[in-house]
Write a protein that binds this DNA or RNA. Structure first.
Length: 270
DNA sequence: CTAAGGACCTGTCGGC
DNA sequence: TGCCGACAGGTCCTTA
């Protein structure tokens, strides 16, 4: 579920509870996530102080003295801070128990998430090939334009490709393209520079707005404090086939692109 | 090299 | 009420 705004919301929610805290115990109830949770995770983490809580793309990075814990929420994951005494539920797979009495709990029904230990995260293969952050300096319309030349993929798949730009999942790809007035199936390489500029601005705008609302909760996303995100009420096209376009009232259309549901206004988006 | 599809999981919803 | 298929916020990996 979580795209960049949800991961960033999670980061902001948990960081104040984690920074400076010592890990006192690790409980792994279900090690079978996207990749097996390392059996020696407790040995690595116990006694270490969490120095920083960062984010790269949709990965959360807990900086410890001796390395970095990389967390990914997959499709259905969430992280919450709870009292260490809180009984665990069916899908509460991993707990990091802190010396202060709180607990960072990973919940993930579908288990597409990941818990990875590594000593040099910037060189980790999962992170090293990633494109720029959409809210960072290196990302703009000129970058999108240059990267997309001679590319036949659809613009939607292009902006969802983490080698191009990170953090944009199915919800925000649909929303950004609507706001930019670009048809999602248009070939990325055949879009003029000015329209890439509009798209880059729309991506930035929609992600920032979503972060400000605490992310989008469709079903089960909760931030670090256990509260849902409120951006769902701002969605213009995602999940709304047949409903009138908010700009021109033409019914929103749904198609499949790269095996993902795609929503757009056939009149506003060209 | 790119593109397309399968794979990994569980839960929920709509239709019959 | 029960069963079955389709679908869901991600993304790596294999195959063509």
């Amino acid at each position: 579920m979580p795209e960049l705004p949800e991961v960033e919301t999670t980061r902001r929610g948990i960081a104040p509870h984690l920074t400076g805290q010592v890990v006192s115990r690790v409980v792994v109830r279900q090690p079978r996530l996207r990749w097996p949770v390392p059996a020696d995770l407790g040995d690595r983490l116990c006694g270490q102080t969490i120095q920083a809580v960062g984010r790269r793309a949709k990965y959360l990075l807990l900086g410890l003295g001796n390395g970095t814990l990389i967390l990914h929420l997959g499709m259905s994951g969430s992280l919450r801070i709870v009292p260490a005494s809180t009984p665990s539920g069916k899908h509460d797979h991993v707990d990091l128990i802190l010396a202060g009495g709180e607990c960072l709990r990973l919940t993930d029904p579908r288990r597409f998430g990941a818990v990875i230990w590594c000593e040099a995260p910037e060189r980790h293969t999962l992170l090293s090939g990633l494109g720029p952050e959409p809210l960072g300096e290196a990302f703009d319309g000129g970058y999108l334009f240059e990267r997309s030349r001679n590319k036949g993929v659809t613009i939607k798949q292009f902006i969802m490709d983490s080698k191009v730009v990170v953090g944009i999942g199915n919800i925000y790809a649909n929303e950004a393209l609507f706001r930019a007035g670009i048809h999602p199936a248009r070939a990325a390489g055949r879009i003029a520079r000015a329209r890439h500029e509009r798209l880059a601005a729309a991506i930035r705008c929609v992600l920032e707005a979503a972060i400000a609302q605490g992310g989008t909760t469709l079903r089960d996303f909760v931030g670090g404090d256990g509260r849902p995100g409120y951006f769902a009420q701002e969605l213009q096209v995602y999940g709304k086939p047949g409903e009138p376009c908010p700009r021109c009232a033409t019914p929103i259309r749904q198609i499949q692109l790269g095996q993902r549901s795609t929503y757009f206004c056939p009149r506003c988006q060209t």
